[in-house]
């Protein structure tokens, strides 16, 4: 862990996702859960992916690990994982989803923390059993050694009396403790990338803060790259270095957290920011919401997916052409015709 060098600004990112498309082929039609998402995760930094529920955040995470369930499938794009400096980068999207290569990466190099600490553990085995299993899947260690490491991990994530807790069942732990255990399990094999999918949504506010602190502290220590997926702008503000805003399976805006919060370009991002409750707002004033709801996945609007809800749409342009993600400032990108002209014939 300690010998992993800290990547500077100029170094290539650990993970690069290019034009990822994950579609679900259901009887009722094709659902384009992720439809051309691109972003990258630099080492030692935190990327926040934000969006409403159903925008494809979680499917993106599952796609990276290649555990998208049928009838879902990656139809296009690449997911480049850069391993040690001298090794060839791998395209995860091209690997056999059941094969040994991707299995070594899952839980080994890329670990996942889920939203539901309650149901993310099997109630039939002790937490120790489930962490030891992960360690022994990826590292050639004996049972006793794995158990010792597990106790160490539990201590590291702040679980009191880990040598006793290790033999408890998930339902004996509180939600906050369970999420700590989940993080311990994710960290058990020193991953390069930690994907946290709504890690604090199911927890109460004080526990949320503790878990986020824990994640930050661990990142500072291990210099791993963290991808945090959330619908909560507050979590983003607290955690992320870079922000990816997703809407209906597409990245609509990306950039450093400061730029996004202070100089959001895309109308959707602006709307999202406006819907954060503020203590400076006038008392009893109505919290702005985004008009309408996310369209039914089978009925995606033509053109820009956000145009039916957009205040600044330009009919004839926004409802016909699909905007591309383009630079709008030195470090910021947005896909919106407010900032660039459509460059090709209409695509649906």
């Amino acid at each position: 862990m300690a010998n992993r060098e800290i990547n500077g600004e100029g170094q290539p990112p650990v993970l690069t996702v290019n034009n990822l498309k994950t579609h679900f082929f259901t009887d009722e039609g094709t659902v384009k859960a992720v439809d051309g998402a691109s972003f990258s995760a630099p080492a030692g930094k935190t990327v926040g992916i934000v969006g409403e529920s159903g925008c494809g955040k979680s499917v993106t995470a599952l796609s990276i690990l290649r555990i998208v369930q049928k009838p879902g499938r990656i139809v296009d794009g690449e997911i480049i994982l850069r391993r040690a400096d001298d090794a060839e980068p791998v395209d995860l999207a091209k690997l056999d989803a059941e094969g040994g290569a991707i299995r070594a990466i899952r839980g080994g190099e890329i670990a996942l923390v889920f939203q539901e600490p309650m149901t993310s553990f099997s109630p039939h085995y002790t937490i120790g059993n489930q962490i030891v299993e992960t360690i022994r899947l990826h590292q050639d260690v004996g049972k006793a050694e794995a158990r010792n490491r597990t106790i160490e991990l539990l201590r590291m994530v702040g679980i009191p009396r880990p040598e006793r807790r290790i033999d408890e069942y998930p339902f004996e732990l509180s939600g906050g403790l369970r999420q700590r255990v989940m993080i311990a399990m994710a960290l058990s094999c020193n991953p390069k990338i930690l994907i946290a999918d709504e890690p604090t949504t199911a927890l109460d506010v004080t526990t949320q803060a503790q878990i986020l602190d824990l994640l930050r502290e661990i990142q500072a220590r291990t210099q791993m790259s963290v991808i945090i997926i959330t619908h909560d702008m507050g979590v983003i503000a607290e955690m992320a270095d870079d922000v990816i805003v997703m809407y209906l399976g597409r990245v609509v805006e990306s950039g450093p957290v400061d730029e996004i919060f202070h100089r959001a370009k895309h109308p959707y991002t602006q709307a999202l920011l406006r819907s954060i409750p503020s203590i400076f707002a006038a008392p009893r004033s109505k919290l702005p919401t985004i008009a309408g709801s996310i369209p039914h996945p089978h009925n995606r609007p033509a053109g820009c997916p956000f145009h039916p809800r957009c205040a600044e749409r330009m009919m004839g342009k926004c409802d016909v052409h699909i905007p591309r993600l383009r630079p709008v400032s030195r470090r910021q990108m947005a896909s919106c015709f407010l900032y660039h002209e459509p460059d090709e014939a209409p695509i649906t």
Partner: peptide, 15 residues
């Protein structure tokens, strides 16, 4: 369909 199956999958276990 339960989440713990996905957790287990994300660990890299064989199906």
């Amino acid at each position: 369909r339960k989440p713990y199956v996905i957790t287990a999958r994300a660990k890299g276990m064989s199906e």
